[in-house]
C-alpha cells in the first residue's frame, strides 16, 4: 500500500541558511531510514508556487496561465511516496517526516 506524504509550507518567514541546512540533514537521515526499512518509493522537493504554470487544453487551444492554480497561504513544498502496510505505520513515518523537515504533512492513500 502506497501513501503520498505531502509536505505543507505554512510560514511566511524565510528560514535561515543554518535552519535549512539542519532540515536538509534531518531529511537525509529520515530518507536513509525509509530506504533501509523498505518504505522508500520516491521523494522530491518542489519550487515555489510562483514558478508554476497552469495549462488547460480541454478546449480548442491550450490556455496558459502564469502562477499556481490557486493562491494559498499554505502550499506544497515537497512530498514522499512511501510504502506501508497500513495507516498506523504510515502515520508513524509521517510524524517522523514532519519532525525531520520541520513542517506539517498530510498523509493520503493512493487508490
Amino acid at each position: 500500500m502506497q501513501y503520498l506524504v505531502s509536505v505543507i509550507h505554512d510560514s511566511r518567514e524565510p528560514s535561515s541558511v543554518e535552519a535549512e541546512a539542519a532540515e536538509q540533514a534531518a531529511i537525509d537521515v529520515f530518507n536513509e531510514r525509509l530506504r533501509a526499512e523498505g518504505h522508500w518509493v520516491f521523494a522530491g522537493g518542489l519550487g515555489v508556487p510562483d514558478n508554476a504554470t497552469v495549462l488547460d487544453n480541454r478546449g480548442e487551444a491550450a490556455v496558459v496561465t502564469d502562477g499556481p492554480f490557486v493562491e494559498t497561504k499554505e502550499f506544497l513544498v515537497g512530498f514522499w511516496i512511501i510504502d506501508a502496510p497500513d495507516l498506523d505505520v504510515a502515520l508513524k513515518l509521517g510524524a517522523e517526516g514532519s519532525k525531520a523537515c520541520n513542517r506539517k504533512i498530510e498523509v493520503r492513500p493512493f487508490l
Binding site: 500500500m1 502496510p85 497500513d86 495507516l87 498506523d88 504510515a90 498523509v107 493520503r108 492513500p109 487508490l111
Partner: peptide, 10 residues
C-alpha cells in the same frame, strides 16, 4: 477501507 486503518488492537 481506502486509507487502511488497521483492524487490530494497538
Amino acid at each position: 477501507k481506502t486509507a487502511r486503518i488497521p483492524y487490530r488492537v494497538p
